[in-house]
Simulated scan of single mutants.
Amino acid sequence: MSVFPHLVAELGRLLEPALAESATAAAIVLFTVLVRLALYPLSRAAFRGATPVAGMLPLLLQLPVFFLMYRAFTSGGELLGHRLFAAPLGARWSDALGDGGPFGAQGLVFLGLFGAIAAVATWSAVRGRRAAAVAAAAAATAAAASAPAGPVGRAGAKAKAKAGTKGGTNAGAKGAAKGAAKGAAKAGTKPGAKSGVKAEVAGAGGVVALSAEQQEVMRKLGGVLPLLSFATLITAAVLPLAAGLYMLTTTAWSVVERIWLQHRKERAEEKERAEREVDRAVDREVDGGVRSSL
């Protein structure tokens, strides 16, 4: 027996005093959670990279485990006779239909599995559509912001540039005083003290402007890709019950994991925005003090 089915069997023995015949089914769920915990660093890196290829890596690494589990519940062995309530873990939906129909003892177990998978798929599809809509809106905003300035905008920019050159000595003195005061405020030292001031350069935003065609492709993909979650429902109807449990658990984990990672990303962005607001408030206070001193 392979190491993965052996681990499931051992987990089932540990859970058997509490769950009786359904212990192996609970062991499959627990085993799937352990696999996803081991893949969490890759999932986090894929989320940060936000590329389809990186996002497929955790799924590809699960395929060998899934195939071993599939063989364990189809080719015989000690796991084949275990059950989830009235349904054997090696049974398929067709077997349940032949043994009492969809509302028989086995059929009700499969209907419960299908209902759980459909709920997770619906949840994933709704969140996927919302994320696609947000991404499309951000791309449209970036495209509008990167549009070339018109004649009026260019004239205004030239006027500002000319006005900025007339300050001469006064502007230079004000800039020097403002820089010294800001450096002292950030470094926590007196204006005359010698201290190294670290310069921070805010780069341009990382949002890439997309063309109208690319935005249309993103909109269409955003409408179709979330529906692929329902393919799990079709697969669970063909594979053994044990494989359906694995797929339900890993799909639900993926949805919850993405929500968690998105929550952490939003919290980090809020923290950065708060820090920028504090920096701007300090800049305004320093600028006011410099102007009053001049």
Score class of each variant (00 low, 15 high):
residue 2 S to K: 09
residue 7 L to A: 15
residue 7 L to G: 14
residue 13 R to V: 10
residue 15 L to D: 03
residue 18 A to S: 11
residue 23 A to N: 15
residue 28 I to H: 07
residue 38 A to E: 01
residue 39 L to F: 05
residue 40 Y to W: 15
residue 40 Y to I: 05
residue 41 P to H: 01
residue 41 P to I: 04
residue 44 R to L: 13
residue 48 R to I: 12
residue 48 R to P: 06
residue 52 P to F: 00
residue 57 L to P: 00
residue 57 L to Q: 01
residue 59 L to C: 14
residue 59 L to W: 11
residue 59 L to K: 08
residue 67 F to W: 11
residue 71 R to V: 02
residue 82 H to Y: 15
residue 83 R to D: 09
residue 92 R to M: 02
residue 92 R to N: 05
residue 94 S to V: 15
residue 96 A to W: 08
residue 98 G to Y: 03
residue 99 D to T: 10
residue 100 G to P: 05
residue 101 G to R: 04
residue 106 Q to A: 14
residue 119 A to R: 07
residue 119 A to L: 15
residue 121 A to L: 14
residue 121 A to W: 07
residue 124 S to C: 03
residue 124 S to V: 07
residue 124 S to H: 08
residue 124 S to R: 05
residue 124 S to D: 09
residue 125 A to D: 09
residue 127 R to H: 06
residue 128 G to M: 03
residue 129 R to M: 10
residue 130 R to Y: 05
residue 132 A to Y: 07
residue 138 A to P: 09
residue 138 A to C: 06
residue 139 A to Y: 00
residue 140 A to W: 04
residue 146 S to K: 14
residue 146 S to R: 12
residue 148 P to Y: 07
residue 150 G to Q: 12
residue 150 G to K: 10
residue 152 V to C: 04
residue 155 A to R: 02
residue 156 G to C: 13
residue 156 G to W: 13
residue 159 A to C: 01
residue 160 K to R: 12
residue 163 A to P: 04
residue 164 G to W: 00
residue 164 G to V: 03
residue 166 K to W: 00
residue 167 G to H: 01
residue 169 T to N: 07
residue 173 A to G: 15
residue 182 K to L: 13
residue 184 A to K: 09
residue 186 K to I: 02
residue 191 P to I: 03
residue 192 G to P: 08
residue 192 G to T: 14
residue 198 K to Y: 00
residue 200 E to H: 11
residue 202 A to T: 15
residue 203 G to V: 01
residue 203 G to P: 00
residue 206 G to E: 00
residue 210 L to V: 03
residue 212 A to R: 10
residue 214 Q to N: 11
residue 216 E to L: 15
residue 223 G to D: 10
residue 224 V to Y: 12
residue 228 L to V: 04
residue 229 S to V: 04
residue 230 F to S: 01
residue 236 A to I: 03
residue 239 L to T: 15
residue 241 L to C: 09
residue 242 A to K: 07
residue 246 Y to V: 15
residue 247 M to V: 08
residue 248 L to F: 11
residue 250 T to S: 15
residue 250 T to M: 12
residue 252 A to R: 06
residue 254 S to F: 12
residue 256 V to R: 12
residue 260 W to G: 10
residue 260 W to Y: 14
residue 261 L to W: 08
residue 265 K to S: 12
residue 266 E to K: 10
residue 267 R to N: 06
residue 267 R to S: 09
residue 270 E to V: 04
residue 275 E to N: 12
residue 275 E to L: 12
residue 276 R to V: 02
residue 278 V to I: 07
residue 279 D to W: 06
residue 279 D to I: 07
residue 282 V to H: 00
residue 285 E to A: 13
residue 285 E to C: 03
residue 286 V to M: 13
residue 287 D to I: 08
residue 289 G to Y: 11
residue 293 S to H: 09
